[in-house]
Computed example of a mutant assay.
Amino acid sequence: MSNTKKTLVLHLGLLVVLFALQFVLPAYHHGNLARIMVLAAYAVGYNILFGYTGLLSLGHALFFAAGMYGMGLMINQFGAAPFPALIAGLLAGALVSLALGFLALRTEGVAFMIVTLMFAQAGYLTVLYFGTYTRGDEGFVIQQAERVLWCIDLSDPTNRYFAAFLIFGVSLLLTLRLVQTPFGRVLIAIRENEERARMLGYDVFAHKLAAVVLSGTISAMAGAGYGLLFGYVGASFASVQYSIFPLLWVLLGGAGTVLGPFVGTLFMFYLIDLSSGLTSAYMLIAGVVLVLLTLFAPQGLVGELRNRLWKELP
């Protein structure tokens, strides 16, 4: 079997396992896995920019929140149906990422990181400023009757699980296809040696901008899906914390790997969940484990697997 076929079988196998788990998981873990899949889609979006293009962003909460509020406000303020509201969330994320990318990509390195953080913080403060519509820190609930998509009640646990599965599956397969295309290869070349990519005649700025827009749109899809599936839109999702989370998930799972974002999200979610059941100082336990992983698996869990066992793993 060729390496391409092995790779496809591996990733499709994960999707088959996730599909099958719907029928066997107890209610608690069933709900957790639905949440993890949507958040993993967010991490997948972040991984395109950080893992494959080499751009460290601390402003991805802006895209996640753009998708969430683009969707939520369409329903809450204009009474839109879920589908056009989701499209509005995607468009909001794409436009915001285009604007941010066009401005932030004029900087490099640490300056890029700081600029994205500043834009994200500005977005968070904007949400608070327009509290009349966004309800600020309190946020607002999307009622069950407003979460019916084509006669499918997304508040139902089974429907919610499959919707989360669809969001994650699309983002996963899109990334897998991306890294096999010439465009994806150029992004990796930019990550490895930007000057050499420029010398070879590639438009580095255009490729970076496209990566920012694609990353931001996938993140917005995750944000819109999260708000619709779990019925809540709040300013906490626009905070710095939600810009740090995808970075941690990607680093833990393995930056620049297709499966890394999911593995990192799953690991981090259950690490906090299990340690919080042991002690109120659960973040101390989580911190110690994260430090150990950073020391002994610096490439992330999937990254170490690639280094040690499967060199061609995308």
Score class of each variant (00 low, 15 high):
Leu290Asp: 11
Gly139Ser: 08
Ala61Gln: 00
Asp137Glu: 14
Leu100Tyr: 07
Asn307Ser: 13
Gly169Arg: 05
Cys151Tyr: 15
Phe245Thr: 07
Leu95Ile: 10
Thr265Leu: 04
Phe237Lys: 14
Glu138Trp: 08
Val288Pro: 12
Ala99Val: 11
Gly169Pro: 10
Lys6Gln: 11
Gly223Cys: 07
Arg196Cys: 13
Gly89Glu: 01
Gly223Glu: 00
Arg147Phe: 02
Ala20Glu: 04
Ala238Cys: 02
Gln22Ala: 15
Asp203Val: 04
Val289Lys: 08
Val17Cys: 04
Leu290Thr: 10
Ser57Lys: 10
Glu108Trp: 01
Ala104Ser: 13
Pro157Ser: 05
Phe119Asp: 08
Leu154Arg: 07
Gly253Ala: 01
Ala65Asp: 01
Ala222Thr: 05
Leu73Phe: 06
Leu309Cys: 11
Arg198Pro: 01
Pro298Asp: 11
Leu176Pro: 06
Ile244Glu: 08
Arg160Ile: 06
Ala111Gly: 11
Val291Cys: 09
Val288Ile: 15
Ala94Pro: 09
Leu125Trp: 12
Gly67Thr: 12
Val96Gly: 04
Phe102Ser: 13
Ala281Cys: 09
Leu247Pro: 00
Met74Ser: 15
Ser171Ile: 04
Leu248Val: 12
Gly223Phe: 02
Pro246Gln: 09
Leu100Ser: 08
Leu173Arg: 03
Val263Trp: 01
Leu173Pro: 00
Val288Ala: 14
Val258Asp: 02
Phe205Glu: 04
